[in-house]
Every structure is written in structure tokens, then in C-alpha cells.
Amino acid sequence: MIEILNIVLLVLILASAVAAVTVPDLVSAAFVLGAFSFFCAILWALLGAADVSFTEAVVGAGVSTLFFFLALAQTQASAKNPSFSYRPLLAAFLCAAGAGLFCLMSAGLPMFGDPNSPPNSYLSGDYLRNTLKQTLTPNAVTAIIVDYRAFDTLIETAVIFSAAVACLLIMRMNHDKTA
């Protein structure tokens, strides 16, 4: 059942990605990208990655959609292709080069589930064995983020909060100058 749900969500992700590329104006592309992020977030939640799902929903669906709108408010809301004809060819070449680079590099990665790979051989075992005992949290990733690395996460949050406050102050200053 969950597999069928995964497949439906993957189809929806693919459909929204294609729609985001093919819709005519950039405002609707931003909306469709928000939908894309929501589908991704549901998929992450289904796979048990609560923190990734939350980040995807906040950053992908919330903040980046808002940033797209703020950028579109400053520019014009329709895509205009400059008139050089080699542009699609260049894009296709760059995509193929990027994909090739990824494939080349992924050959050097350890196999999925390899017990001797560096991420699996140092701390992971300890975390997986002791998380439930020490923190009473069923999700090991959540336990690592908000329990073992609580100060790290707290100070990261403080950094992001102060960055947001600074951005808001700067935008408020510009607003006052123009008004």
C-alpha cells in the first residue's frame, strides 16, 4: 500500500516538475514549484525523514516561493528568451555534462547499506544502538539533531533568526526611504 502511495507521489512530483517548466508565465511556475515542494515533503515524511520533510516544507514550499514572488515583483513576470538560437543546445550540453559528472563521481561512493563505509563505521552504530535508551526518541535523526547536538541546533536557529531579523530591518529601511 505504501509503495503504491510512493509511486503516486512520484508521478505527481514528475507532473508538477514538468508543469513548472512548461507553464507560460513565471508566477504560475512559482506556484507549481511550491506544489512540487509539498509533494516532495510528503514523500520525505512517508520515508520517515521528519526533519528533511519539515525543511522541504518550510524552505521549499514556504520561503523560496515567497522569494520567487519578491523577485518577480522587482522584475517582469514573464520569461523572455534572448534571441540567440544556440541557447537550448547550450542548456542541453550543460545538463548532460552535469549528469555525466554526477555519474562519474557516484562511482566512487560506497554502496548503499555497505557496513564498512565511513558513515556506517564510526558513530552511526552507537547512535542506532543507544538512541532509544538514552533519549526515548524513536526517530534517530531527530534525536541526533535536537538531543545529542542540541546546542548546535539551538545556535544554528539563533543564527538564522538573527539573519532573518537583519534582512527584515534592511528591507524596512529601503521601504522607508522610498516611501
Binding site: 508543469a19 507553464v23 504560475s28 506556484f31 507549481v32 511550491g34 506544489a35 509539498f38 509533494f39 514550499a61
Partner: peptide
Amino acid sequence: FLYRAAKGPTIFDRLIGLNGIA
């Protein structure tokens, strides 16, 4: 909702489409 968000003639259709998906 995805169809409405991608196709919707006005911007409010798109907003409601995204909201419905959420």
C-alpha cells in the same frame, strides 16, 4: 488542484490551487 495551480486563468486560482494542495 495541481491542474488549477498550473492552468488557472487568474492568480487567485493558482493561489487556491496551492493552498488546496497544502
